[in-house]
Simulated assay, not measured.
Amino acid sequence: MLGVHFAITAEQEKLLLDADGDDDAVSEIIGALEEDWADDALKVDTDKAWDAIHRCLTDGTLDPDGGTGPLALAVVGGRHLHDEMYVVYVAPDEVRAVAEALADIDEPWLRARFGDFDDDYDGAADDDDFHYTWDGLVCLQGFYQRAAAAGRAVIFTAM
C-alpha cells in the first residue's frame, strides 16, 4: 500500500467529517481530493515507508492504538474515517503537536527504534530499508511543519 498525507482545507475537512460513517462517500471525497490536488507543498508521498515510520513512532506494530502522544498520530493513529482502507484524520491542533514532536526526531533516534517491529512487517529491515524510512520521515517532518503553519488538518491515506 502506498501512503499519502494531505494537509486539507477547512472545506475538505468538513466534507470528510460529515461523511464519516459512509465509506462510499468518504471514498468519493478522497478520490476527488487525490485527482484535483494542486499544492505539492501540502502533500507528501511516503510511498511504502509509512509502515516503518509508524512502527518506529509507536510500539513497533501497525496498531492504530499502539503508541502514545502526538507521534502516534503522525501516520495511522488518528481518527479512522473508512472501514476498508486507511483514511486517517488528524485535527489542526493535533497537527501542531505532531509537528513539534516530529521536529525532535533525528537519525540516531530513528535508527535505535528501526527494526524493532512485530513479525508482520513486510520490509527488509536492512540498511537500505532504514535509509528509505529515514528519507520518508524527513519529508514527513517538513510536511507537518507546513501543515501546522497553515493551520490545516491532515488526512493520511493508504491504498
Rank of each mutant, 00 (worst) to 15 (best):
G66K: 01
D116M: 01
E94R: 13
A72Q: 03
D65Q: 10
A149L: 11
F130E: 11
Y121V: 09
A124V: 05
D127Y: 14
A147W: 03
F117I: 05
I53H: 08
T133D: 12
V88T: 15
F130L: 15
R113A: 12
R111N: 01
A124K: 10
D104R: 14
T61K: 01
A150Y: 07
V87D: 02
V26S: 10
A25N: 00
A99F: 09
D119S: 07
A97L: 14
D20L: 06
E84M: 05
L33E: 01
V26F: 09
D39A: 05
V26M: 08
L71C: 05
V95D: 02
A52L: 02
V76Q: 02
A41I: 03
D23V: 11
D104V: 09
T133W: 12
D45F: 08
Y89L: 13
R152T: 02
S27Y: 09
H82A: 10
A101K: 05
L33A: 10
K48H: 10
F114C: 00
D93K: 07
E100V: 12
A72T: 00
H80P: 11
V98R: 12
D65V: 02
R113D: 01
H82P: 08
A38I: 04
A91V: 11
G67V: 00
A38L: 04
V138L: 15
V44T: 15
D83L: 13
G78H: 07
Y144C: 02
R146Y: 00
D24K: 13
Q141W: 03
D106S: 06
W109C: 05
H80V: 13
L140P: 11
M85G: 00
A97P: 08
G123Y: 11
H131G: 04
D127V: 14
E28V: 02
V88G: 07
H131R: 14
A112T: 02
C56I: 06
L57R: 06
T58C: 06
G77D: 05
R79D: 14
F130A: 09
E84T: 10
A112P: 03
R146N: 06
D24C: 02
V88I: 15
D129E: 15
W50K: 01
E100T: 14
C139L: 15
L42G: 01
Y132T: 12
V26W: 08
G78I: 07
V76M: 07
G115S: 03
E100N: 11
R113H: 12
D106A: 07
T61E: 01
D45S: 13
F143E: 12
D127H: 15
I105D: 04
A99L: 06
D128R: 13
V154H: 03
D40H: 07
D51W: 13
D135T: 14
D127K: 14
G69N: 06
I30N: 09
D51L: 14
D128N: 13
S27C: 04
F143L: 10
G78T: 04
V98Q: 06
A38G: 09
E100F: 05
D93V: 07
T133C: 13
V44M: 09
P92V: 11
P92F: 05
T68A: 06
L62H: 07
M85K: 08
L62V: 07
F117N: 06
D47L: 11
I155V: 15
D65G: 11
K48Y: 12
A148Q: 08
L33H: 09
L137Y: 14
T58S: 13
K43R: 10
D65K: 09
P64F: 08
D23Y: 12
G142I: 03
A99H: 04
T61F: 00
